[in-house]
Design a protein around this nucleic acid. Structure first.
Lengths: 214, 214
DNA sequence: CATACTCAAATGTGATCACAAAAAATCTAT
DNA sequence: ATAGATTTTTTGTGATCACATTTGAGTATG
């Protein structure tokens, strides 16, 4: 049976293709420079070109994909300048979100962050790169969610999306770097309501990526 | 003759539809809450649904349009919280871009900004709202371009895009507010390489919009 | 007068297709 | 063997279509 309509609230084909593709990019499953085609994505997701096209257009608008002048689809290759600009933007936005979240960082949130951090320790030991990266993002996102600045958060997530492939592939087998101790410092700054220390730690955490190219 | 291909470098149908629609939103030709349909846009632009769909998806990703759960396309209606968050983001990004541009603001740039400001004066007197708004954006963009931070600038332009319809319609017939004197102050801060004064003026210029809702 | 129901028109979605351009593969001449 | 020419394949674009769902006007019911 041919199904084209969609009950309100049900997820559309476009929506699930988008989510899948986005996650692949965000978690570094696709290499910078790698090229994609509508038809192969369509067959991978067992659908037609149309929802794939929609997803590609959307992800291109978010900076996660690049469409060349001749229309070919690739994972963008970041120049060093672009990479540094993205990190700089991260540092500004994350500092701002952290400040806004700080007064609202109650015990429930801190507990949750601690639990995520324990998960990260576990994933690091058992070499589960994907889960480690996902947990790291979840740590940051959980904190920033408290800032209640949805637009700024979505801008930040787009920046993460643009960094995803490059960071994952620059790290290579070294994804296993210790972030847990830095996270513990962040937790104590939250506990102490120490805003200047929090900003310092967040900026350090973000700009720590800067040397992965060398 | 049916034409579907496209020489490299030539603008696609999707591209021109996108630009047209984007400008309409940016310059406030569409009212917040107004609904659009693929078919009517397609006939307006004398094309089929496909390029329109692409443009709508792209603009939705940029926050310039909203697609409801049932798929209907509208110009987003900003809540007061969302509006204030957008202004806050503008103030952060524009301050950052201004600082970066300041050391590179040589005489050629300042001349150009002065000329744009004269145009604005003219458009204000002859009641050309559209041209006035366009010139005001051009003033800011010309300055920020010197910051050589293309990603930050494109984020800023998306924020402008989200504010466009609401600002234009909240202003109504009062689009004619005097910005020229504030711009002159900005020019003198540039001339004096006075960074703290520049930030103060930029923030004042941006947050000056805050009371248009009352 | 308000509320629920009916039904036709309007709308976005996903699928499919032809086509021009680009890219890849094959062939040819030197 | 290699560079250039030619053919074949791949690819994105724009157009069109059927269809499920939504919408909104009209109507009936209380």
């Amino acid at each position: 049976m041919l199904v084209t309509g969609r009950k309100e609230g049900n997820i559309s084909v476009h929506g699930s293709v988008y989510k899948n593709l986005r996650d692949k990019i965000l978690y570094g499953f696709l290499r910078p420079g790698q090229s994609l085609t509508l038809r192969s994505l369509a067959s991978e997701f067992k659908t037609s070109m149309t929802p794939v096209r929609d997803s590609v257009r959307r992800l291109t608008a978010e900076g996660a994909l690049k469409i060349s002048l001749s229309g070919r689809i690739t994972i963008p290759v970041l120049t060093i300048e672009r990479f540094n600009e993205l990190l700089f933007i991260r540092s500004i936005i994350e500092a701002e979100l952290a400040i806004k979240a700080l007064p609202k960082a109650h015990i429930a949130l801190i507990d949750r962050l601690e639990s995520i951090n324990l998960d990260m320790e576990m994933f690091a030991k058992s070499f589960e790169a994907m889960e480690y990266i996902r947990a790291n993002m979840e740590f940051h996102r959980s904190l920033y969610l408290r800032a209640q600045s949805p637009i700024m958060l979505s801008i930040l997530e787009n920046v993460w999306l643009q960094l995803g492939p490059t960071v994952k592939h620059a790290l290579g087998e070294n994804w296993n770097i210790v972030k847990q101790s830095e996270h513990k410092n962040i937790l104590s700054a939250l506990n102490n309501q120490d805003s200047s220390q929090l900003i310092f730690l967040i900026k350090k955490d973000v700009l720590g990526c800067q040397n992965i190219f060398m």
